[in-house]
Amino acid sequence: MAAPARARPELEFGAEFLRKLEVLNVIARKIFAGALRADRQSVRKGVSAEFADHRSYVPGDDFRHVDWHLFGRLEELFLKLYKEEENLHLTLLLDSSLSMDQGARNKLNYALQVAAALAYIGMSNMDCVHLLPFDRRLRDNGLWGLKGRGQVFRLFDYLARLEPAQHTDLARSCREFIGKTRQRGIVVVLSDFYDLDGFQPGLRYLKFPRHSVYVLHVVDELEERPDIRGDLRLVDCEAGTHREINVTEGLLARYEDAFGRLARGVESFCVRNEMGYCLARTAVPFDELVLKILRRGGLVG
């Protein structure tokens, strides 16, 4: 926020990023292999036997799904994955408004990295991943139905080209989202929740189809403690409105209090509405954040 004119750094999904995602994927599999699979079986009915993919066996996997034929040829354990069994829908609602294009570490870039990681993990587990950016409405070019690691580069390419625009209208975007899909699933909302009309209506929309909602509140350190002083003209980066304010130490202290109340307001709303909540500070490396999210487990509700 202190350097608003600074251009958004180019986001690269290179080999290093891919290596981090693979590590996260392995960890995620260890965490969720048992419980997650059982939960899915219990939740879903009429599981199909249509083969979809193999994956390496990890301790804890159900021996019933081991491909013994493949073991006989390769002497290595692989699990058979079936499409009908991976009928989980993971939707990533990504705030790509102009307010996300702010921060000492660009919030949008950070959110893109987190979204890429979550999507990769989901795609690796043959979940049906939807990556849907939104600003004042749901963007038309969102990625629907990503499955399997084979589409990971499509995902990266899409994320790399995503540009911030418009202001945030979370309610309209969520309303459009639930109008386009009837399948229940996990909805992860990555946003700074700077909505002039309030974030509450939008999140409430997501509860109606009984989605499992997980909120990632993206926050930059300069939003928490702005590094500005003096007589300034503060310009809203989304609405373009401005106000002349003499920023003093006293005002900054009150701002920090107000910002803390705003963040706690989002969290308390999520708790009250049985939504998962995680404060995503850009200062925390995205892989640590994803790991934290996975370990808390709320993401798969």
Binding site: I228, G230, D236, C237
Partner: peptide
Amino acid sequence: KVRRRRVAVPYLRLWESLVQET
């Protein structure tokens, strides 16, 4: 000197609420 420096903020309403307080 009193011509103010422009600073873009993500959510001006938060600042405005404080200005109203003061």
